[in-house]
């Protein structure tokens, strides 16, 4: 099980080694120690490996991830798992702003809270935050799900497209074109599947959540809606 100490090894050496792995590699479990808030740790991975990072990370950890499972045993800086395509990224602490930004697929699980703009412009990822999320989360979110066990900050889902937002707690305010929608069986089933994927099946009741989505009133620009922007 290779271990990288980022106090003695360079970030380039770490990412270079992870990029060089063959699809059938036997080196599937990696540990990174002393990350010390370094940026761009474990970015651009494209192999079915597990990377455990013991400590806090800076910006863009696990950015553009494919296939890999990345666990951050600490807090994450801006843009954790940004533009992820697939795989699993787990933050055991809190995440800063723009967590999961523009991500197309995979799952981002945050045990703590997430800052502003969580899931901004998300394009298919499933994000689950056990704590609360900050303002302007899911701004222009296009697809995927954002599940929040805690509360959501102001302007949730502003200019939302087709992403589905499930919030158990309170929502400070909804953004333009974001409305509360009926929680039907299909949504409870979807939510249950996401909770199950996060290891929360049986622990959290999907019936406690409210669903938010796009009113689709701003899908075509019309002057009568100019005041909504």
């Amino acid at each position: 099980m290779p271990t990288f100490d980022l106090r003695t090894a360079s970030l380039r050496a770490l990412n270079g080694a992870l990029h060089a792995l063959r699809p059938d590699t036997n080196e599937t479990r990696w540990t990174v120690v002393n990350p010390d808030g370094r940026h761009a740790i474990a970015v651009g991975l494209d192999a079915p490996i597990q990377v455990e990072i013991e400590g806090n990370v800076g910006y863009y950890c696990a950015g553009m991830n494919k296939q890999a499972s990345v666990v951050i045993d600490g807090h994450a800086g801006v843009g954790v798992a940004e533009n992820m395509l697939s795989g699993f990224v787990h933050v055991r602490g809190d995440a800063s702003q723009s967590a999961g930004a523009t991500a197309h697929g995979g799952m981002l699980l945050i045990d703590g809270n997430a800052g502003a703009r969580c899931g901004i412009s998300m394009k298919g990822v499933d994000i689950l935050v056990k704590g609360s999320i900050g303002h302007m989360s899911a701004f222009m979110a296009q697809a995927g799900t954002l599940t929040v066990l805690g509360d959501a900050g102001e302007a949730l889902g502003d200019s939302l497209y087709e992403a589905r937002l499930y919030v158990r707690g309170t929502v400070a305010s909804l953004g333009a074109d974001c409305i509360e929608k009926e929680m039907r069986d299909e949504h409870r089933e979807q939510l249950f599947a996401k909770l199950k994927a996060a290891g929360l099946a049986g622990e959290v009741d999907p019936r406690e959540f409210r669903r938010y989505g796009s009113a689709r009133a701003l899908y075509h620009f019309h002057v009568d809606n100019a005041g909504a922007y």
Partner: peptide
Amino acid sequence: VDQRSACRHPDWTGPDDLAIKIEELREIT
């Protein structure tokens, strides 16, 4: 659907962040 493209990047603002973003893109490639 009318497609809007944002005027700001979703995960960085300002030159200090841009330097970190460029580092990420360099690391990925």
